[in-house]
Amino acid sequence: MKQSGPLLEVRDLSVVFDTRRGPLTAVDRISFDLSPGEILGVVGESGAGKSLTGTAITGLLERPGRIGGGEIRFEGNRIDNLPPEQMRRLRGRRIGAIFQDPLTSLNPLFTVGRQLVETIQTHLDLGREQARQRALELLAEVGIPAPEKRIDHYPHQFSGGMRQRVVIALALCANPKLVIADEPTTALDVSIQAQILAVLKKLCREHGAAVILVTHDMGVIAETADRVAVMYSGRIAEIGPAAQVVKAPRHPYTEGLMGSIPVIGTGADRLTQIEGSMPRLTDIPAGCAFHPRCPCARADCAAVRPEPRPVGDGKVACVLYDGGGI
């Protein structure tokens, strides 16, 4: 692995669904970089294209979805056009994935230990006993009490939080350089959510893995991510350091989104409201996709799609910042 340069480069990535009425663009020319060991949060509302971005990077897009254009480079090499067999070897060993529902990501018919050993042996050249030893270490690392007993249990014998720990162990078992976590805590209670995020953060730091954390929960992002990308209608509206995006949002959509979250300790009687809802894929407005809902919209917003411009330490795609930035 090269020490310099980003771990992952995404350039003008589009994800397209072919339908009978023509192609629908669900992710529209997005670009971002990810440095080794960095945690990038991807936020947005349902249908913003955040999960599809993760799916495209792992090469798990299913028909009728396909990559419609752009490049994905991992450690300098293109991976968006790899044959499925090569992609399969990369996935798991170099790129791990954690999904929302821990029950459906585990096979209910096999013990947790068997699933871990199988995954470890697929990716690493280890014997059965060594692999089991490694599985025990991983279970202990993710904080499962009495791993030597629990390793022979079936997924249904674990609670939701414990299952998600097992899924994290599975994702990390080949020491991947990149972990894509798609809503890893959405199905869990707040107190369990905190435990899982702590485990995820600690282990990725220890294993030196970068993380793309896809979630709709701004609080999770604010506490976990180094940088945040805010998505709207398949585009990145704003990307930048977490503190900047959360505390001083620049894009009117990010600003509205932040204001609409109730915060404990403020006496506000009314939440900021973004009128309307996100457009359907079939009728994304021309120009800036947000302009019909935007309080700052101008005449040219409906005509030209704004490109991301550098503002502060991040980038914002909005005409308000087209005048040279900063």
């Binding site: 959510q193 995020l197 604010a222 977490a242 932040m258 915060v263 404990i264 300790g265």
Partner: peptide, 11 residues
């Protein structure tokens, strides 16, 4: 334990 957007990066 609740994630709080005002206390960014708090462990």
């Amino acid at each position: 334990t609740i994630p709080d957007i005002t206390m960014a990066r708090r462990d």
